[in-house]
Design a protein around this nucleic acid. Structure first.
Length: 876
RNA sequence: GGGAGCAUAGCUCAGCUGGUUUAGAGCAUCUGCCUUACAAGCAGAGGGUCCGCGGUUCGAACCCGUGUGCUCCCA
């Protein structure tokens, strides 16, 4: 079979993914094995694969594939989130394109379009995850608005309401005037903006028509003055002490409002006097509560002025801000205008300025249900990786605020609250149940009179059930699947949603399954571009992932994204790391080609594998790395695990081992050595498989006729490592590198052969590696010597000396300079060690091993200096 | 305004319990090689005020304090 010059991923990837699916490797059924369960953080049903998903899902796939290869029943559940706000926005946009206004549709008509949209475009991302190689159990694909799931959400609402954890209350909320919906605090993005600070004076009620006195306030929002119900000053501010308890008039509308003293006001800011608008500012609202001020809501839900504003009724808030200034000026109330930079909240979804607004909303009171969730993380029932997120979590949980769960949207789980005309309401699972509930209070109620709440629940109010409801843990409590798969093992997610989602899943897990939802949480970093900017649609700095997969292959993309992304650290995405991945794949491909060349040249050379240094050394390395990988994977240090495997493959296997066993040009290779090498290569593919599944499967099958697939091949136990062989290998590598360096520095061309003489007290340690050494430094002759060799290049390694004899005329200058440099370094080092050892307090206080170690360093350095001095003497 | 975290080579990061650290890796850079698996490669090399200052200690990249800069979360 002819293998291509370079590795070409496209066909290989398609072929193997289809094969794995065909074999049903990703589908999981409960059995006698231990489960390893991961639920995907459900991407928005509107989503398309971006870098964040790619990182997140690569990590999950690595964990899941590795579990599958280590005797676990691996189950990775896919699915999507209905994403109320995002999806509704998409559907509205689609309707607009077709010339249909949402307002012209009934709720049911709108939902009809929404489902149509979902069926047609939703879940593209799940197809894209297949391209990435994700080993998801597709038969389990879930959606947060599946019939059962929907019912479970309603059930939870009813249950929490019955337990008194859900209440309805008028509260200050963030209001999106474009989407006409309440936003959670988390959906508000604060941005720095250039504003104006308007200084406006309010006439004080002096009791006299002729005596005019004013108090000046500063505000960035002059359009809200019609909602003012007080002026507040700091009680310690001497300038205003005489005004405490007096009244002032709101300009233009002449409302009489009190002047109240409160510490809240900063003396230094603005004029030191603050207008208080309880209906439109959270801090003012709190002040209003404290002093029982009137609350006058001057704004409609679309951001226009309401009747209560008295003036500018029906005009937009920003228009009013412009128009009110000349009016204030002509009324004599405007003092001055200054430039001002402040933080303003914007809606995450529509990017319009968020209004603080009083509204009747549904709330979950969090304190009670959050306690077990806090404890679980603090007691390491649930482990965070990296652990630094524990602090953050604790701080948030200890200061947890109630959760506003209603959203003024149609797409989502409709709030199961039912109202009568008179405003009385019940919470029920269905209209029929609501009817029963109403009837028990009032037998005259007719079912047609009952109206269900128009609003939907916050998307997170459904996703917090995800880890158990994907197994129908609530819709079919205690079923065999949820018993087997729950609690899940690992959750992989972004730290940004630790509160939105992770914390709430933990709460729901304890509340509804009596158990944690997962044991470990791996927090990925945020993917940023080369300049460190967060990747976002608006910046347009998100690369086209499918394009990258086409260009480099899914394996290379996975490699590139994993190689430099330790848990919890941001990932600065740079295409060059994908190149590194592609090059790595190509390297392996070429190693395969080399073996294929040897395959046809096998001969029984009677090699003694027990004494074959290269074979034993590599086996040793392989087992060392396997053991290290095992530990790193347990610690979720995926990036480091990949790094050491990369180095094992490239450096140890390709650069050292294959060169050591490589037969001469067109010479045969020993059959046993070849077979052993093939099996090493297979093992390398096996360790690497979870990271780069496609190429490893391909190479595994090209190396040999296989009866199984790597995807489900079980890892064998790791063999013990022989330290002596490891050390001998290190020595060999050091000697080879040093001798090559010496060759380089003396301008010996690679093809020029040398004669190598070794001066050592440990001849036996070199005998096993002598042949390899000779080949690797292109020596046609090696010997052991007791004496220095004249006119040769001297290389000193530890206590041993190597003499390179060559026919070329040597220039000793560089060599001498090198040796002198080394001598200087060693002398200084010896000095520092000697000082340390002559410090009595060190010798007394330090641990004996440490002192012993320093003594060894001292004697080694001294010996080394002696060697260098001898070499120098030899040069002269 | 409140909180959390980070600062080590040009870049991205290791460095876990203070002592094999006169600090490692990958990438990038430089030098030499088109050597029959691989130039998407091979062989080698150079590169550091461990952010500044102070302290604890026989000993600090690591612990404590402080300053500076950056990032994130919350208001």
């Amino acid at each position: 079979m002819e293998l291509s010059k370079n590795y070409i991923p496209t066909e290989v990837e398609t072929k193997w993914y289809a094969h794995w699916l065909d074999k049903g490797y990703f589908s999981s059924k409960p059995d006698e094995r231990d489960p390893y369960t991961v639920v995907i953080p459900p991407p928005n049903v509107t989503g398309v694969l971006h870098m964040g998903h790619c990182l997140n899902n690569s990590i999950q796939d690595i964990l899941v594939r590795r579990a599958r290869m280590t005797g676990k029943n691996a189950c990775w559940v896919p699915g999507t989130d209905h994403a109320s706000i995002a999806t509704e926005a998409k559907v509205v946009a689609m309707l607009r394109e077709r010339g249909i206004a949402k307002s012209s549709l009934s709720r049911d008509e709108f939902l009809g379009y929404a489902w149509e949209w979902k069926e047609k475009y939703g879940g593209i991302i799940l197809q894209q995850l297949r391209k990435l190689g994700c080993s998801l159990d597709w038969d389990r694909t879930s959606f947060t608005m599946d019939q059962d799931y929907y019912q479970s959400v309603i059930k939870v609402f009813n249950d929490l309401y019955a337990k008194g954890h859900i209440y309805r209350g008028k509260r200050m909320i963030n209001w999106d005037v474009r989407a006409k919906t309440a936003l959670s605090d988390e959906e508000v993005i604060y941005k720095e903006v250039q504003s104006k600070l308007y200084y406006i004076r309010y006439r004080i009620d002096t009791g006299s028509e002729s005596h005019h006195e004013f108090i000046t306030i500063a505000t960035v929002r002059p359009e809200t003055i019609m909602g003012d119900t007080a002026i507040c000053v700091n009680p310690n501010d001497e300038r205003f002490k005489h005004l405490h308890g007096k009244f002032a008039y709101v300009p233009l509308i002449n409302r009489r409002i009190p002047i109240i003293p409160d510490e809240y006001v900063e003396v230094d800011f603005g004029t030191g006097a603050l207008k208080v608008t309880p209906a439109h500012d959270i801090n003012d609202y709190q002040l209003g509560q404290k002093y029982q001020l009137d609350i006058i809501d001057t704004m409609n839900d679309d951001g226009t002025m309401s009747e209560a504003a008295q003036i500018f009724i029906g005009e937009d808030r920003f228009e009013v801000r412009k128009k009110i200034i000349p009016e204030l000026e002509s009324a004599g109330n405007l003092v001055k205008i200054e430039d001002y930079t402040n933080q303003v909240g914007f809606s995450e979804r529509t990017d319009v300025v968020v209004e603080s607004r009083l509204s009747l909303q549904w709330w979950v009171s969090m304190k009670a249900i959050s306690e077990p969730a806090l404890k679980a993380v603090m007691d390491d029932e649930i482990n965070f990786h990296p652990a630094k997120f524990k602090n953050l979590y604790r701080h948030w949980m200890e200061n947890i605020k109630d959760w506003c769960i209603s959203r003024q949207l149609w797409w989502g789980h409709r709030i199961p609250a039912y109202y009568l005309e008179d405003g009385s309401f019940v919470v029920a699972h269905s209209l029929e149940e609501a009817f029963e509930k109403f009837k028990s209070k009032n037998s005259k109620v007719k079912i047609e009179d009952i109206k269900q709440d128009e609003d939907c629940l916050d998307t997170w109010f459904s996703s917090w059930l995800w880890p158990f409801e994907v197994f129908k843990g609530l819709s079919n409590p205690g079923n065999a699947e949820v018993k087997y798969y729950y609690p899940t093992n690992t959750l992989v997610t972004a730290p940004e949603i630790i509160f939105f989602w992770v914390a709430r899943m933990i709460m729901a897990g304890y509340e509804y399954q009596g158990e944690k939802p997962f044991s470990d949480v791996y927090f990925t970093g945020i993917v940023r571009d080369k300049q460190g900017r967060k990747m976002s649609k608006s910046l347009g700095n998100s690369p086209d992932l499918l394009g990258l997969i086409d260009q480099y292959g899914a394996d290379a993309v996975r490699f590139g994204i994993m190689i430099a992304s330790p848990a919890g650290n941001d990932l600065l995405f740079d295409e060059s790391s994908l190149e590194q991945g592609r090059n790595f794949n190509n390297k392996m491909w070429n190693a395969l080609k080399l073996l294929k060349m040897w395959e046809v040249r096998q001969a029984d050379l009677g090699a003694d594998l027990k004494n074959d240094f290269a074979i034993n050394w590599f086996e040793n390395r392989l087992n060392t790395v396997k053991a290290e990988v095992e530990i790193l994977m347990q610690q979720f240090r995926l990036s480091e695990a990949l790094k050491i495997i990369y180095s094992l493959v490239w450096d140890d296997f390709c650069s050292w081992y294959l060169e050591w066993i490589k037969p001469g040009f067109e010479q045969p290779i020993d059959k046993e050595v070849y077979q052993r090498t093939v099996s090493y290569f297979e093992e390398l593919m096996q360790i690497l498989h979870p990271f780069v599944p496609f190429i490893t499967e391909e190479i595994y099958h090209l190396l040999n006729e296989q009866s199984d697939d790597l995807c489900v091949k079980q890892n064998q136990s790791i063999k013990a490592v022989n330290e002596d062989i490891t050390n001998a290998g290190e020595l060999l590598k050091n000697v080879i590198s040093a001798l090559r360096d010496a060759r380089n520095k003396n301008q010996l061309k690679p093809k020029e052969t040398i004669k190598l003489h070794i001066q050592t007290e440990n001849i036996s340690s070199y005998q096993a590696i002598e042949k390899i050494l000779a080949k690797q430094v292109n020596a046609d002759q090696t010997s052991f010597t007791a004496e220095s060799i004249a006119n040769s290049i001297v290389v000193a390694i530890e206590k041993d000396k190597f003499f390179i004899e060559t026919e070329k005329v040597l220039d000793a200058t560089t060599l001498k300079a090198e040796l002198l440099k080394d001598l200087e370094y060693q002398t200084k080092f010896l000095q520092s060690v000697t000082i340390k050892l002559s410090n009595e307090r060190f010798v007394q206080n330090a641990k004996p091993e440490v002192v012993e170690l320093e003594r060894k360093k001292q004697s080694d350095a001294a010996a080394r200096i002696k060697t260098i001095e001898e070499s120098l003497a030899n040069l002269n």
